[in-house]
């Protein structure tokens, strides 16, 4: 399940995912960042993500591409150890700010 919230003051778009972050989230995750106008920064809240697969990694790359690739500031926050492990294996800490 995907929810998004735009903070007008900080111009930060927060996308929160609950449960399994996999292909079933594809459409709602994409909608979360394409329907809104550009934000200054992006946060993907992973606090309630229990598992994330390679198509979720692909979705994160889509988000990164959408907000400008190398220039994008995207933080992945509140990830549990299992999720951090998966992100680390893919070396995504070189593309995103990841915090537990």
């Amino acid at each position: 399940m995907v929810e998004s919230r735009f903070d007008k003051q900080t111009e930060c778009l927060t996308i929160k995912i609950r449960g399994r972050f996999d292909y079933s989230c594809h459409k709602s995750f994409k909608d979360a960042f394409t329907t809104l106008e550009m934000a200054k920064s992006y946060e993907v809240d992973l606090a309630e993500v229990t598992y994330l697969d390679s198509s979720a990694l692909g979705m994160l790359l889509l988000l990164r591409d959408h907000v400008g690739g190398e220039k994008a500031t995207i933080s992945l926050t509140k990830a549990n150890d299992a999720v951090i492990d998966i992100l680390k294996i893919a070396n995504f800490h070189r593309l995103f700010d990841i915090t537990g």
């Binding site: 790359l61 190398e70 294996i89 893919a90 070396n91």
Partner: peptide, 15 residues
């Protein structure tokens, strides 16, 4: 030997 690289097809050739 752990993963030290991003997967293939993610980074542009110059990065």
């Amino acid at each position: 030997f752990n993963s030290k690289n991003l997967p293939l097809g993610v980074l542009s050739p110059d990065a």
